[in-house]
Amino acid sequence: MTTPPPVALKPAGEHPVLAAARQLAPKAAARSEEIETARRLPADLAQELAQAGLFRMVVPEAYGGFEMHPALVIEALETLARADGSTGWCVMIGAVTAMCSGWLPEPQARLIYGAPDVITGGVAAPMGRAELVEGGYRVTGRWPWASGSQNCRWLLGGAVVTKDGAPQMRGPMPEVRLFFFPIADVTLHDTWHAAGLCGTGSGDMEVRDVFVPAERSMSIITERPRVASPLYGFPAFGLLGVGIPAVALGIARRAIDELTALANQKKLIAAGGQLLAKRPAVQEAVADAEATLRAARAFLFETVNTTFEAGTRAEVSVKHRAELRLAFTHATRSAARVVDRMYEAAGGTAVYRASPLQRCLRDIHVATQHAMVAPSTLELIGSVLLGLDANTVML
């Protein structure tokens, strides 16, 4: 593993956006049942989060954003997800999508991100087709998992570029680009009837033969950021995925909170009214969960800071990128193990809808299904760490 340099965990002082996340978290927690039932983030809450700057965390300062250190982005998302998993997920999608502002030509970046309360979202997976035409592309596609899209003014979709119906090749791979659509050009399908993260509104988005000017498209694979900043020296896929482990860690911390509170209230009839907290198996589970969560979090922050520091010197290697993805996957899957243990330790109480632990269980196991942190990522990472040839384009 790469030896980390002696870098600070985060810049000194509390960032105002992180302070805003702490202030808004109780509001999200209080509306958790409403969010779950509505299957989307309420528009007024989304706007309050936007006005607090939570969707502008990685927008360039030149465009009115904050260019926050990735470690601070993790903390803000973790704070919101601890209060409500769906809120954390929606803010994560909107916030990391906004990284595209650093790649877009300045006029388009200002057009899309000029309003201080704008929310963008979408799906980067190349599930669309973009036919080359004069001045741009005509894009058709349908993308699932368009989280938070109901509150967005712009949505992006990934697509394979075609000419006369045939994929345009870049070496051995088809060319893939991201395309921005104003919300008026997008049809949203209410398909989000899911096991967990129910309040994220992650239904399908669809466009049909929509013209997108060439300057409103970009590639984070083949193009460099247009904004010179330490933040955009961080790996593009790393910045895109940094919020997933943050949300997972927040959900897991909530699970420990809930089990701890329950254990000091619930009495076991079969044990003569003894508190659940006095049960050795519960004590062991809480101790193990605490160590697992904090170790995963420490590895995540260590790797994020090491990679960020390398990015400031333009020295990010394939190994840095592999270890960063390893930290993402490890943190997310460790968080799932923590939630599982807290749910099991709670006993039958946890199965009821009134229990936050059942929601933590459902939410975390939807988060683990994201392709960015799937078990298969470990095969690719292991290949890099073993010095084998591997396709690392998506790291």
Rank of each mutant, 00 (worst) to 15 (best):
E36W: 00
A346M: 07
A374G: 12
A248I: 14
E302Y: 11
A331W: 09
P6T: 05
A374D: 15
V58G: 02
V176D: 09
G122W: 05
D257Y: 03
W103G: 03
S149A: 05
R82V: 01
L239C: 11
D164Y: 09
R177I: 09
H330G: 04
M92D: 03
T306F: 07
V318D: 01
T329G: 01
V118C: 02
V59A: 10
F179H: 14
I183C: 06
G250I: 07
A76R: 00
I269C: 08
A109N: 06
G238C: 12
E175H: 06
E48D: 11
V59S: 13
K278R: 13
V384P: 04
I220L: 07
A310C: 03
A19C: 05
T303K: 02
L378C: 05
I93H: 00
A270S: 12
G121W: 06
R40T: 04
A43E: 03
S317H: 05
P6A: 11
H370N: 13
F328N: 06
A295K: 14
L324C: 05
A214G: 08
A83W: 01
E48H: 06
G347R: 06
E215K: 06
A314F: 07
D44Y: 08
R325G: 03
K278G: 11
S32D: 05
R362W: 02
G196A: 13
W103C: 03
G158Q: 10
T200S: 10
V316K: 01
W143T: 06
T120E: 10
A367Q: 13
P107G: 11
A25D: 00
D340W: 09
A287Q: 15
V91L: 00
E34H: 09
R341Q: 14
A8L: 15
I183H: 05
T140E: 11
A83G: 01
L259D: 05
Q369D: 04
E48T: 09
M173Y: 13
L268R: 08
T97C: 07
H365A: 03
T392V: 15
M205F: 01
A8N: 12
G114H: 01
T392F: 01
V210A: 14
R359H: 00
A291I: 15
Q265L: 10
E315W: 01
L361H: 00
G241N: 12
F180V: 06
A390L: 02
F211Q: 08
L268F: 09
E223M: 03
F211H: 11
V17N: 02
L324I: 11
F299G: 12
I256S: 02
A115P: 11
Q369H: 05
L357P: 00
E75Y: 05
V351T: 15
L18W: 09
E206V: 01
W143H: 14
A346I: 05
W143M: 07
V210T: 12
T368C: 04
E48A: 10
G273C: 14
G136K: 12
F180H: 15
T377D: 00
G158H: 08
I183Y: 03
A255E: 07
T292Y: 06
Q358N: 13
A277G: 10
A125T: 12
A12M: 05
L24C: 04
T349H: 15
G128V: 07
Y113N: 13
P116R: 06
A291N: 14
V212A: 13
V384T: 09
